[in-house]
Design a protein around this nucleic acid. Structure first.
Length: 271
DNA sequence: GATATTTGACCCCT
DNA sequence: AGGGGTCAAATATC
């Protein structure tokens, strides 16, 4: 690492530290303000949403600072892997280097959250591209593999798997999906919408609501009162619901989305 | 024609 | 050796 890189790196670290400090202050401010607002009121919901957006934004900045040009390198790597494939011996990246990076991705595919959702598991605020589907042994339903739609041009390595749960009879005819998220989004896109959903006929404010199971996955609970008692940590774990979904005309879909908005869990939001 | 999805094969990991 | 994650050609859709 040369002097320039070194100074840039230390500068980035200082900025990250400052942003971390801001996040702590925001957290304190949230704890201070929210109890003074009337639960279920417009102000309370708006405040929740604002805090969520502030925190989401700062998280993105930190991600970019931490990754730096790595995102470009990762994008190039993905391009290479797609173009060259596994048998392309003309590739300049051979031997230990290719092996190292190839393995790294699997090993380091950090599990960042999991949910059980009743809604179609595609509406979570991000755009995804399906890249695979497999029938898992002994499973009744196939598992689908998705990566962030920005993986190609921005090197975003976020992926998720979706698998319909096997019905245990307790949920009747309702279909449940296990959704597991891996990696962090490092992409910046206008497609990720952060709506201020304060008043809609179908949509309740996006309050996190879940019961953390021993396995770390999450199950929907429709009790609104429990939603309002949710801890602050979960507040910022909510996905951003695309704006078009807040004006859904399909009653059934709107109903399932109501629940879907209460599902996203990130296990290390404050880390 | 561009883009997204499907699907069989490959290969890493346990 | 087998399960499961990923690749990439084929196919579908717009």
């Amino acid at each position: 690492m040369n002097i320039l890189e070194s100074s840039t790196h230390s500068g980035c670290q200082a900025v990250i530290n400052e942003i971390e400090h801001q996040r702590a202050l925001i957290r304190d401010l949230h704890d201070l303000i929210l109890p003074t607002l009337d639960p279920c009121s417009r102000q309370e919901k708006l405040a929740q949403q604002l805090f969520q957006d502030i925190f989401s934004s700062s998280s993105k900045v930190i991600s970019f600072l931490e990754l730096g040009d790595n995102s470009k390198n990762q994008a190039n790597l993905i391009k290479y892997r797609r173009k060259g494939g596994k048998n392309n011996m003309d590739s300049p990246m051979l031997g230990e280097e290719a092996k190292e990076i190839g393995n790294k991705r699997r090993k380091n595919a950090q599990h960042t959250g999991s949910v059980v959702t009743q809604a179609p598991p595609h509406f979570d605020g991000y755009q995804w591209r399906k890249y695979g589907q497999k029938w898992i042994s002994k499973a009744k339903h196939s598992r689908s593999y998705y990566r962030c739609a920005n993986s190609k041009d921005q090197g975003c390595l976020a992926t998720k798997t979706v698998q319909q749960k096997e019905s245990d009879g307790s949920s009747g005819t309702v279909r449940l999906f296990d959704v597991d998220y891996y990696g962090q989004h490092i992409c910046m896109t206008d497609d990720i919408i952060h709506p201020y959903v304060v008043e809609t006929t179908h949509y309740t404010a996006p309050m996190a609501n879940h019961n953390q199971s021993s396995s770390g996955s999450t199950v929907v609970d429709n009790d609104v009162h429990e939603i309002l008692d949710e801890s602050f940590e979960n507040l910022f774990m909510m996905p951003s619901i695309p704006e078009y979904l807040t004006d859904f005309t399909d009653i059934e879909m709107a109903g399932t989305l109501d629940e879907a908005t209460s599902l996203m869990i990130s296990e290390d939001i404050w880390s």
